[in-house]
């Protein structure tokens, strides 16, 4: 009898995510049964049942993976910039060139696409996936920027790469403390420094690097800057799974 009643109560919380049920299910069922016993009921009333459905929808679609306000603002800015960049700067349907990608003059549109995907994921409350895709867009734009600087493509400008990478890093990093801001700020500085070394002190063409010690050292320093920026900006395990700040 008791098991049968408990089974009916467990059905009420079936819409919650499995992890939430594993964490809170027994305590919630116990509290519901206590409340109903005190009220002389054998089953929760309509108001309690509705609250459970609303709570389950909230837990499943809204609460678990929201991007913070700063991440969301950066993502929206990044997507607007990406769309403008793709449609105004790189849209060149008639251009014949080795590194064009469809109607676009260079592959930066790949990073733009990733940022749009990140926005869609964020809209569907998939914040962790959105952060990860934003981080991939940073890797993509840095790779394109570095290859462009090395092989003299019609690639993205230095400022364009810095804006893409900077906004992407802000999206990917949970900015919840002063230390987070310092980390992301330092990562942005390192990205800028790496690009500076790649573009301003342009190394010799790739085939001559082995004969050019200065160029080789510049490449190494730029690579070290990018790698350090990634280490700084890569969300730690704790940060990556941390929920957004919730206003009490």
């Amino acid at each position: 009898m008791n098991n049968e009643r408990r089974g009916r109560y467990l059905k009420l919380i079936r819409w919650y995510p499995a992890s939430w049920r594993a964490r809170n299910g027994d305590a919630v069922v116990g509290t519901l049964m206590d409340a109903d016993d005190a009220a002389g009921r054998s089953y929760p009333g309509a108001a309690d049942r509705s609250a459970l459905v609303a709570g389950a929808l909230h837990e499943r679609f809204i609460a678990p993976e929201r991007l913070g306000r700063s991440n969301s603002a950066a993502l929206i800015a990044a997507v607007i910039f990406s769309l403008w960049y793709a449609s105004v700067i790189t849209w060149s349907p008639g251009l014949e060139y080795p590194v064009t990608l469809g109607p676009f003059s260079n592959p930066v549109v790949l990073a733009s696409g990733m940022l749009v995907v990140a926005l869609v994921l964020a809209l569907f409350s998939r914040a962790r996936a959105a952060r990860f895709v934003a981080l991939l867009s940073v890797a993509t734009i840095l790779t394109i920027g570095a290859l462009s600087a090395t092989f003299s493509w019609l690639g993205p400008s230095l400022l364009g790469v810095v804006i893409f990478a900077g906004l992407g890093l802000i999206v990917a990093s949970p900015l919840q403390s002063r230390a987070d801001f310092v980390r992301v700020g330092a990562a942005l500085f390192l990205v800028a420094a790496g690009l500076f070394m790649m573009a301003i002190f342009r190394p010799m063409p790739w085939g001559y690097v082995q004969y050019d010690l200065v160029g080789y050292l510049q490449l190494q320093a730029a690579a070290a800057s990018f790698a350090s920026a990634f280490v700084l900006a890569w969300p730690t395990r704790r940060n990556f799974w941390r929920k957004a700040v919730v206003i009490p």
Partner: peptide, 28 residues
Amino acid sequence: MIFGGANALAIAILLLPEYSHGMSTEMR
């Protein structure tokens, strides 16, 4: 020059009021 502008943009973004913490909020 370019770097100055880019870094200023990044710093400006990071210093926007919405990024600051510790704003008092009414408790539900």
